[in-house]
Design a protein around this nucleic acid. Structure first.
Length: 106
DNA sequence: CAACTGACGATAG
DNA sequence: CCTATCGCCAGTT
């Protein structure tokens, strides 16, 4: 069984609204991770190992600068299409504009 | 139980 | 622009 903190992260991930994205560090902080950005590794670990089992919206998670974290050929293309389908646009550099980041406002 | 892995983030050079 | 390095730590093998 995962720890309490892990459950919180899973929860935060599921709370990201459709048509929005969030960064790893953002999720970590939202989950109450004391180390904030440092907790991004937790999110990575959890996403990599449990995204499928836990049915998580892993495609809504991008790097802080808006770039897709996955390597091309390892799902990046899939993630881009999933986001486009939700109404998230990418700029010329292949990054999501900050405006699409989830503000926890909703 | 001891590695090993990982889709990060900040900072320094 | 880039690489390197550190911090941080759950989950898997």
């Amino acid at each position: 069984m995962p720890r309490e903190q892990t459950r919180r992260i899973l929860d935060a991930l599921r709370a990201v609204p459709r048509g929005r994205v969030a960064s790893y560090g953002q999720i970590a902080m939202l989950a109450g991770h004391p180390r904030g950005a440092g907790g991004a590794r937790d999110v990575v670990s959890i996403l990599v190992s449990m995204s499928e089992k836990e049915n998580l919206p892993w495609w809504r998670i991008v790097r802080k600068d808006g770039a897709i974290a996955l390597s091309p050929g390892s799902g990046a293309e899939l993630q881009r299409s999933l986001l486009l389908r939700e109404g998230v646009a990418f700029d010329a550099s292949g990054k999501v504009a900050q405006a699409y980041f989830w503000t926890m406002d909703e």
